[in-house]
Design a protein around this nucleic acid. Structure first.
Lengths: 203, 203
DNA sequence: CGTGGCATGTAAACGGTTACATGATTTA
DNA sequence: TAAATCATGTAACCGTTTACATGCCACG
């Protein structure tokens, strides 16, 4: 691949509205705020990539229009940058290599100390509730400020996929918490009758 | 972190049944077959990691028990390997950095040529249908060969999370295909009445 | 005036994939 | 015996994170 995917996220960010300019810092923040559920970039990627895109003419640097004081360098998309973005968009998407550490630790839960898997599921619920709240915040913000942007339907579809996946995970977590409590209670007292209250667990 | 996560997947694989031994090749295959929906490892990671784990005494090499002919080197878990695995399992799980290229391309769908986003969603459906079939295969295999393994409840929970997420994505895809067809049809003929049949689309 | 956040950047390290090389074993 | 697949390994490369360095600006 000619460009890393970091390059395309940047081009994409700058394509979102007609004359948009943004600095590296702003791009980083925008990615975190808007793509947080499905993408991430570090400064260590963004700044070098901006330079490269600039040298290739896919973005251009905004000249300081007034006053001698310029702190942040802003960039905007060029026509060839837009073409490059479009070409990439039409290519088949890569499946990200699967690496879900939660699922891995859950799978090996039987090897862990009692209560470990249960604690992981509770933590997953906590993180997913947080994620859901973030996504709902984005949804409500987009309702309050109805944009004319023709891309908006795509933003909403992406958001709804994020919500659907998070919701499914939360539902799974709910039913799993019940099951796991039973499993781990049974593990803790394998030879006794199951009449001992769970809070009397010696572990 | 002392060890890469590759090390822990290997330790975990070797912990799955009491006297289990496996070669690098078998470990790779087992990860692909069983963890394919949430984890992946390449040979380039597995073989060097096996050597390292061996040198640290976390696994041990099986000695050729009969005949001069030995093709594949098999390893098994040592007691200190098991301890190391347990320690890692009890640590909080990392959130994998989010990198979902499908969602990225969908988000920027308004910038792409007509039909591109729709094609991506169709492709996503295809991949998820395939994923679902694989997961159902695992489920049925586990029904046909009911194991006594006490870890099985955790395997089933992991499987059910995979299925829940895949199912949610498939449902989203179904409703999205309908919506997207409408959106992209409207984009293609913005100034005309919507009475032109979609197959007459000049694009 | 000092502190904390804004903003930009870089070097090193890391985890991981890819491509390649090699030989052994099985199957046709 | 030829082809396919099993099996092991390594070197180079790549994208990314981390840690660090720096200076500016606003606010108390």
């Amino acid at each position: 691949m000619q460009h890393s995917r970091t390059a395309y996220v940047i081009l994409g960010m700058l394509s979102l509205s007609p004359g948009l300019t943004a600095s590296g810092y702003e791009i980083h923040k925008a990615i975190e705020d808007n793509f947080g559920s499905f993408w991430g970039e570090s400064y260590g990627q963004i700044y070098p990539t901006l330079k490269r895109l600039l040298s290739e003419g896919l973005i251009e640097a905004k000249k300081p229009d007034s006053g001698p004081r310029r702190k942040r360098q802003e960039y905007s998309l060029t026509e060839s940058g837009r073409v490059c973005l479009r070409e990439w968009l039409a290519l088949p998407f890569q499946n990200d290599p699967p690496r879900n550490e939660f699922m891995l630790k859950l799978f090996f839960g039987g090897e862990a100390a009692p209560g470990v898997a249960l604690a992981h599921v509770r933590e997953l619920q906590r993180r997913n509730q947080h994620m859901m709240a973030t996504l709902e915040g984005i949804e409500q913000a987009s309702r309050r400020y109805p944009t004319e942007n023709p891309n908006k339907p795509y933003w909403m579809l992406t958001l709804s996929l994020g919500m659907a996946l998070t919701r499914a995970a939360l539902e799974w977590g709910e039913s799993t918490l019940a099951q796991l409590s039973a499993i781990e209670a049974a593990e803790a007292q394998p030879r006794q009758a199951a009449d001992t209250p769970p809070e009397a667990n010696p572990a």
